[in-house]
C-alpha cells in the first residue's frame, strides 16, 4: 500500500517532460496513474523518478483539426466518453471510453496512459485501431507519427520508447457510422474477458463498410479484417451477419486463464462480434 521512495517531477511542457525521460534514471511516466499506482503500491516496480504529466495543459482536451479529431493524451476517459465531438465523429471511441473500469477510474485515467500501458485486456486500443488513429509521439529528436496498427507491439509494449511520450491521438472523422462495443465480463468492474468493437456504415438495408476489432484475443488488439471483408455488402440480418462473423476468431491467439480458456474466448469473440456488428448496424435484436 506504500510505494517505494521516488523523485517526483511535474513539468508543464512536453519538452521539459521529454527531457526528464533521458536523464539516466529509471523513470516512469505518470499520466492518470490508474494502472501505475496500483503497481507502485504493490511494489511490483520502484522507479527512481516519476514524471507526472498532470500539469502539461497542452496534453488535455479534444479538438477538431480539419477532418481530424485530436485527443490530447492526458484527456480522461470520462472526458472522452462524454465529449460531443467524439460522440458525433468517433462513436466507437466514445462508447469504449465509457466502459473502461469504473467511474472514478474514468475520472482520473487517461486515454494516453491507457494505450501506452497496452494491457491486452485494455479496451481503448481496439477502438483506435478500428478508427485508423494516428499516434503522435514526442521524443528527444522531435515528434513522429505512428499508425495505431503499428503502435501496439506486444503485451504492455508499444511503439513509444522509454525516452518518448505519447502526446496526442488523431482520428479521421467517421460521420454516419454506427458503433457498438460488446464487452464481456463476469462482474462489472472486471477487465474484458473478450470484447468486440464494430463500426458500421450502412447503405439501405446493407452493410456498406464495417470495421471490427477484438480486445484480449491476443497480446495486442486485433482487427478482424476477414470479417470486415465478409461483411461488405451483406444485408443487416441475423443470419447474414452471423455467417460473416463466423471467422472472427481466426488468426487470434487468446490466452487461457481463470475466466475461460482459449477455445471459449474464440467462441465468445464470434458471438460478440456478431452482436456488435448488428447493434452498430442498427439492427433491432431479438
Amino acid at each position: 500500500m506504500i510505494p517505494s521512495q521516488f523523485e517526483f517531477r511535474a513539468p508543464t511542457t512536453v519538452d521539459e517532460a521529454v527531457e526528464l525521460l533521458s536523464n539516466g534514471m529509471d523513470v516512469k511516466v505518470l499520466a492518470g496513474g490508474q494502472s501505475l499506482l496500483p503497481v507502485l503500491k504493490l511494489r511490483m516496480a520502484d522507479p527512481e523518478m516519476v514524471v507526472s504529466l498532470t500539469k502539461v495543459d497542452a496534453l488535455r482536451g479534444v479538438r477538431r483539426d480539419g477532418d481530424q479529431l485530436v485527443i490530447g493524451a492526458m484527456t480522461t476517459h470520462a472526458e472522452v466518453a462524454t465529449d460531443p465531438l467524439i460522440a458525433a465523429h468517433a462513436g466507437l471511441v466514445g462508447k469504449v471510453a465509457g466502459t473502461i473500469a469504473d467511474p472514478q477510474v474514468r475520472n482520473r485515467g487517461t486515454i494516453g496512459g491507457a494505450v501506452v500501458h497496452a494491457d491486452p485486456a485494455g479496451d481503448m486500443g481496439g477502438a483506435l485501431l478500428a478508427s485508423d488513429a494516428q499516434m503522435t509521439i514526442a521524443g528527444p529528436t522531435g515528434t513522429r507519427t505512428v499508425p495505431a496498427a503499428e503502435f501496439f507491439v506486444d503485451f504492455f509494449t508499444t511503439a513509444v520508447d522509454e525516452d518518448e511520450l505519447l502526446t496526442e491521438i488523431r482520428l479521421p472523422v467517421f460521420d454516419g457510422w454506427g458503433a457498438d462495443y460488446q464487452k464481456f465480463t463476469r462482474v462489472a468492474q472486471q477487465w474484458s474477458i473478450v470484447a468486440a468493437g464494430a463500426m458500421v456504415r450502412t447503405s439501405g438495408d446493407q452493410i456498406a463498410e464495417a470495421r471490427v476489432v477484438l480486445t484480449n484475443m491476443d497480446s495486442v488488439p486485433r482487427r478482424a479484417t476477414a470479417v470486415e471483408q465478409a461483411l461488405a455488402g451483406v444485408p443487416v440480418t441475423e443470419e447474414a451477419v452471423a455467417s460473416a462473423c463466423a471467422a472472427a476468431a481466426e488468426g487470434t491467439n487468446p490466452t487461457s486463464d481463470l475466466n475461460g480458456d482459449a477455445e471459449y474466448r474464440r467462441h465468445l469473440a464470434t458471438v460478440l462480434t456478431r452482436r456488435a456488428v448488428l447493434a452498430a448496424a442498427g439492427h433491432r435484436g431479438t
Binding site: 469504473d102 463476469r186 462482474v187 462489472a188 468492474q189 472486471q190 477487465w191 481463470l258
Partner: peptide, 16 residues
C-alpha cells in the same frame, strides 16, 4: 493464491 486481490477475486458490485 491466484485470486489474491479484488481484481481476480470477484466480489459483486451494484450492477452485478
Amino acid at each position: 493464491l491466484l485470486t489474491g486481490s479484488f481484481t481476480e477475486y470477484l466480489v459483486p458490485s451494484a450492477p452485478d
